[in-house]
């Protein structure tokens, strides 16, 4: 069995391994690097439970070979919180009861994070379309949409804070 060397950045940390070329990225993350927050829910790239960011783009890590991802920057659910401070999406999923069994949740949060980077102010329909590559069997999606909207509000509020301050000055 031949192996190839892969080196990549995962959640800001450089990591490397010698792997079979057929190894799936999701198995590199889970079985080699021990980052078990990323889940596998299907064989056919339908469920999105394995969604991570590869060089800033959301990807289904069960449909990517580890060797393909060598040299890339990967972000997983384990890289979302800032120390003890939850990412606004994590907080929002908790606040809005956007999860039940929790199995689809990491993929759902990662896809939602990518969505909000592309579209900071989505409509509910845009949220639904944006997470249409992620299946949830528990929640009926209603509270996931609410969670994404809560996070969208928080993320844009924090970004636009200086602008708001300037507007206040202008008004006076």
């Amino acid at each position: 069995m031949t192996t190839q060397h892969v080196s990549l950045t995962v959640n800001g940390q450089p990591m490397e391994a010698d792997v079979e070329p057929r190894l799936l990225l999701v198995h590199l993350l889970r079985d080699v690097f021990g980052l078990t927050g990323t889940h596998v829910g299907c064989d056919t790239s339908n469920c999105g439970a394995c969604t991570v960011h590869v060089d800033g783009r959301s990807a289904k890590s069960c449909t990517v070979l580890a060797v393909q991802a060598s040299g890339s920057e990967i972000r997983t659910i384990e890289g979302m919180a800032d120390g003890a401070t939850l990412h606004p999406l994590q907080q929002a999923f908790w606040d809005q009861h956007g999860l039940q069994c929790g199995f689809c949740t990491p993929g759902m949060i990662m896809q939602s994070a990518w969505l909000l980077e592309q579209n900071p102010h989505p409509t509910d329909d845009e949220v639904r379309e944006g997470i249409s590559g992620n299946l949830c069997r528990c929640t009926g999606y209603v509270n996931i949409v609410k969670a994404v909207q809560q996070a969208a509000g928080q993320l844009s509020a924090s970004e636009s804070a200086p602008v708001a301050a300037a507007a206040t000055v202008d008004a006076s």
Partner: peptide
């Protein structure tokens, strides 16, 4: 139960 799930720290059988 949610803090572990939203941070990818649930422990499912495959883990």
């Amino acid at each position: 139960e949610d803090p572990r799930f939203i941070q990818g720290k649930g422990e499912y059988i495959e883990d």
